[in-house]
Amino acid sequence: MPRYQLDLTLRRAEGALGRVIGTAERRGFRPLSVDGETREDGDRWYLRLSVEGERSAEFLTAQLEKLYDCLAVEAMPCP
C-alpha cells in the first residue's frame, strides 16, 4: 500500500491535532507515525505524519487544506 509523509503547519488551537489525524483516518489513511512539536514562542504546531492508504496523496492534502487550523501541508511519497 502506498505510503506518504505529510509535513504540516497548524495553528496551535484546541482540536487541531484531532482534526488532522481524524481527517486522515476518516478519508481512508492509516497513520504510521506521528511526530510533532510546538516551539517556544509558540502559536504553531509543526507536525510530521506518515500514513498509508490506497487513495492519492492529492486527495488527502486537498481535504487537509480545507481545515481552518491547517496553515500548510506538503505531501511526498515515503522514502
Binding site: E14, G15, G18, R19, G22, R26, L67, Y68, D69
Partner: peptide, 16 residues
C-alpha cells in the same frame, strides 16, 4: 460536543 462534532462541522470553537 466539540469533539463529537469534529467530522460534521466546517469548523468549531471551544471558548475557554
Amino acid at each position: 460536543v466539540f469533539g463529537m462534532t469534529l467530522p460534521v462541522v466546517k469548523h468549531s470553537f471551544l471558548v475557554r
